[in-house]
Amino acid sequence: MRKYYLEFEKPIQMMEEKIAELKKHLDSDFSVELREMERKLQYMLEMTYKNLTPWQISLVARHPERPIFSDYRDKLFDDFLEIHGDRNFRDDPAIITGFATLGNYRCVVIGEEKGKGTKDKLYRNFGMPQPEGYRKALRAMKLAEKFGLPVLTFVDTAGAYPGMEGEERGQGEAIARNLFEMSALKTQIIATVIGEGGSGGALAIAVADRVLMLENAIYSVISPESCASILWRDASKGPRAAEALKLTAPELLKFGVIDEILPEPIGGAHRQPEETIAIVRKALLRHLDELVRISIPKLVQARYQRFRGLGVVQVQD
């Protein structure tokens, strides 16, 4: 049984509970009634998830049972070796860095980690990095550049942590430095937005050759709630802000901000974490195969052009 249902999933919850109840009283799986109900459930999931609003997608992106970076780390790789610290201040648990092998590729892996369970979530600061997290990520990227290893980053954060220590240690400088250095890093970089892409805190590990995004992930300059509280002084108008911000994968693909939408299993990544991670694996391997064939100068030039070209303006005569 699932523990957590979103508001709009209530009919799905009722059906899943009915099926579970029925299964309890059946001796075998061969029941016409059960088959019928399961078909119906599948249809409900399909219809619901095909027609999610941007706000509902924002909720799915932050679903408590959605696979987070540590799930990818554990299921994508069987040899992950974590490396710690920014060599300057401390090790930030909100960003995990390390070495791993994916297919035939030895990689440097960087992920924003929200944590599991109350204790771990607190330890990970709910995936909101401090400056030293971004500096650790940059150190890992510099290692990748030095030894010619591709970089895989996994974006999942509400944003860089807006606290006092972060300001004292230069949160702005840390993010800016990553944008500056990543733009010309001499190795392949693939960023995958797996959940929440929260503003500068997400971009700081996403200046990449390929930016992939799961179907129900979001990527935005500001959270819908904060946007609503600034525009209308009312955080409960998040649904309206989510609509206005155009923060879903299809919108971002149109703007050229991402390169590919990775489809999630029916009913969202939280219903089938393993299948979701398998989809991500296939996409990563395909893009790695493409990127390693491009010479490094060409790759860096294309990365520059990609970000150089983003934005929409009017030019008057």
Partner: peptide
């Protein structure tokens, strides 16, 4: 929206 965020990467690059 996201295009304003991307200006950070563009200028830094």
């Amino acid at each position: 929206g996201i295009l304003s965020l991307m200006q950070m990467a563009k200028t830094s690059a």
